[in-house]
């Protein structure tokens, strides 16, 4: 854990100070914003994935594979559509974002708690349902976007790709606030999550308020996915790599250790990867695509190994 913390600090320093030009003040503040965004997104995705895997008791799922991020994009579009451009556009970005997150929590709870409760037996069907729901939400969002503004090719485009170079810095303060709150809550209930991972019958027998904790965990996932999606766009497989590595590195299923571990690993991968691509290779926006590619291969490998639990 200490080694990982040092590695993360090193990566951050390298990202900030490598190749500062003469206009270093300007560059530094620009980079600091991006760095904060990446750290937030990394932590959010890491915690969201670990929580989701615990709730679904399945190690190959991420909230994004199950369509969480698509749901957020749909919510966002639907909100603009239903409130009209007049009222909604006049709100400031943070307020707008807070409203979106609140609606996202309600929608994802309604959908995913029933889905996880009902389809728990047939894992393959559960995953397939999630994937198709993702397609449905994304198409519906595209449909709505076209209705709002028929020439808005860009809206759909934006929702289809992620880029870590394009952190939405307007939202940083509120995103930081929400992420920190959600992560603190997750760490606070960490011992209870260990019991949750034993499955409902055992958890109930041990006196855990299982269903309430599951709803709490899903709400946290909804908040964290909203933050990550709003900041950089949809990233489906990144969390899978992070959670997989964290489980290996932590060596135990204890969430008090697993969650910080996952956050550190995510931070190192994002900041280190971005430093490498941006500074060493001169490629601005490709890290997300590369991570998705590698993560997709990893997921495929897991599936082919028959490890769907």
């Amino acid at each position: 854990m200490i080694a990982l913390s040092l590695a993360l600090t090193g990566a951050c320093a390298a990202y900030l100070f490598w190749g500062l030009g003469p206009k270093w003040q300007f560059v530094l503040s620009l980079r600091a914003g991006k760095l904060a965004g990446m750290l937030l997104v990394g932590a959010a995705v890491a915690v969201a994935t670990v929580l989701f895997q615990t709730v679904s008791r399945n190690r190959i799922l991420t909230p994004q594979i199950m369509g969480f991020d698509a749901l957020y994009i749909l919510m966002q579009t639907a909100l603009v559509a239903s409130l009209g451009l007049s009222g909604f556009a006049s709100l400031t970005a943070p307020v707008k974002f807070a409203v979106e997150v609140a609606i996202m929590i309600a929608a994802s709870l309604a959908l995913f708690s029933t889905l996880l409760g009902r389809a728990g037996q047939d894992v393959a069907r559960l995953i397939l349902t999630g994937v198709i729901l993702g397609v449905l939400f994304r198409s519906a969002a595209g449909f709505l976007a076209r209705l709002l503004d028929p020439n808005a090719f860009a809206v759909v485009q934006y929702a289809s790709f992620a880029s870590f170079a394009r952190v939405n810095t307007d939202l940083l303060p509120i995103a930081a606030l929400l992420t920190c709150a959600a992560i603190c809550a997750a760490l606070w209930v960490a011992p209870r999550l260990d019991v949750l991972a034993l499955g409902r019958p055992i958890a109930v027998s041990l006196g855990l308020a299982h269903d309430r904790l599951m709803l709490l965990a899903l709400s946290l996932v909804a908040v964290l996915v909203s933050v990550a999606t709003a900041l950089v766009g949809p990233i489906a497989f990144f969390g899978l790599i992070v959670a997989g590595l964290a489980h290996e590195a932590a060596g135990s299923g204890r969430h008090a250790r697993l969650l910080p571990m996952a956050m550190l690993i995510a931070g190192i991968m994002l900041v280190g990867g971005q430093t490498l691509f941006e500074r060493a290779l001169g490629l601005q926006s490709t890290l997300a695509v590369v991570i998705e590619f590698v993560g997709g291969l990893f997921f495929l490998w897991l599936l082919l190994r028959g490890r769907i639990r």
Binding site: L283, S285, G306
Partner: peptide
């Protein structure tokens, strides 16, 4: 794939599509 896992087949297909799609996107971007 294990033969009885009927629903793994479309899942593998969708993931393969995603990976190939990511390759296309990457090259297209560059």
């Amino acid at each position: 794939l294990p033969a009885r896992e009927v629903l793994l087949v479309p899942l593998v297909g969708i993931v393969l599509s995603t990976i190939l799609g990511a390759m296309v996107t990457f090259i297209g971007w560059q």
